[in-house]
Design a binder for these strands. Structure first.
Lengths: 212, 212
DNA sequence: CTCTGTGAACGACTTCACAGCA
DNA sequence: TGCTGTGAAGTCGTTCACAGAG
């Protein structure tokens, strides 16, 4: 029985398992073995069991895992059993698209506001929220108890804006700007580098390192 | 002296180094040590040296690395010394935003077309390209020798579309759909799961596992 | 003296393989 | 018999530390 800090890798796969379990639940399936769960996800059955074992004992030998209860457990572990209020900073193309992306709401994230500095954008509505001036940041964050932010500003503004977010009380930043952010140790930063991701593909194709 | 297959992790960091080196070059700096390069990027100096050593010997003891030549080497390694033609499949909010994202062009990727199935979207222009019907896929891919695709369709269409892409000759797919794709071994798939990324943040905040 | 390239030590993650429960 | 949970073994990636080049 262990309860160590839980590697990033493991948490990422938990999201994967959760998604798959939700598919199974939709199809009315109510129990699943580690190997069935692993099957379509390109991980091993042992991996699934080990990952889940980081957090407790959820299965029954000879049977497998019950889908519904496991979904609930995973949501609890990931923190998405409650809905999180999220803001988007930077209402350009990418920020706007993210504000309208339906996938977040289904997984327990709700946008409460967007922020920008451009005159022309402020006051407009994107998705279900209003674009506000950065000056309102602290107030909105406080009022809605926002802990998570999506950062979609130009690279040269990213660090500066990140610092304002931290000061306002944000505890997790999903960073789409092509910049490496420095943040206090109690703030999590998740980098999403689009150009780098395409470069991975480019490398794989150019060097013939695909799955072989 | 090694020349092993080069782990994913290493390639991802190469992109990071490249970005940083380009910043340095812009500022007119022409040499850099592994520890300077590592500094702002939150990796160790030894890591930088080991990563580069996977591909050759680029530095000079006592001096460091020359910025310009190293940029050229990294581009060559990543395959971005030449421009890649890229298509986007799925011209919804996300697909549209990606088509207009300037960051790709700067890094050697050029969009040549977008594809969708919705009547209303076909024929429109987004960014610099025209939205075409999926029926034109094979022809455009062939004509422009497209090897890389960005997939931004709904989850339930993702696998089906991915198969068409593979059949058309695409060799790398950057997948924004929340689905795990199966592809032949000579096709690279890079998953970008937005909801899962936010779940990472949620987990980190909920469990107090930020950097501590 | 400075800084790279690299074997060797270390640590983290994954797979193996099996005891034990249903 | 079927399948989980888990130590043990194995693999992979990172850090250490230093010989040697400039």
């Amino acid at each position: 029985m262990k309860r160590q800090p839980a590697p990033d890798r493991v948490v990422r796969r938990l999201s994967l398992y959760l998604r798959q379990l939700e598919h199974l639940a939709e199809r009315g399936i109510d129990k699943v073995s580690s190997s069935q769960l692993a099957g379509s996800l390109q991980v091993s059955a042992a991996q699934v069991r080990k990952d889940l074992a980081h957090f407790g004992q959820f299965g029954r030998p000879g049977v497998g895992y019950r889908v519904r209860p496991l979904i609930d457990e995973l949501r609890r572990i990931l923190g998405t059993d409650k809905t999180w209020n999220v803001i988007v900073v930077g209402a350009g193309n990418l920020g706007s698209a993210l504000l309208q992306y339906k996938g977040f709401l289904k997984r327990g994230f709700r946008f409460v506001a967007a922020f920008d500095v451009a005159r022309g954008k402020i006051g407009r509505h994107i998705g279900n929220v209003r674009v506000r001036h950065m000056g309102e940041l602290a107030r909105i964050v406080r009022r809605h108890r926002v802990k998570l932010a999506i950062l979609a500003v130009p690279a040269d503004a990213a660090q500066r804006v990140a610092e304002r977010l931290c000061k306002a009380g944000i505890k997790g930043i999903l960073n789409f700007a092509p910049a490496t952010l420095a943040a206090p140790p109690d703030v999590a930063v998740g980098p999403i580098d689009l150009a780098a991701s395409l470069e991975q593909m480019s490398f794989a194709v150019a060097s013939g390192t695909s799955t072989r």
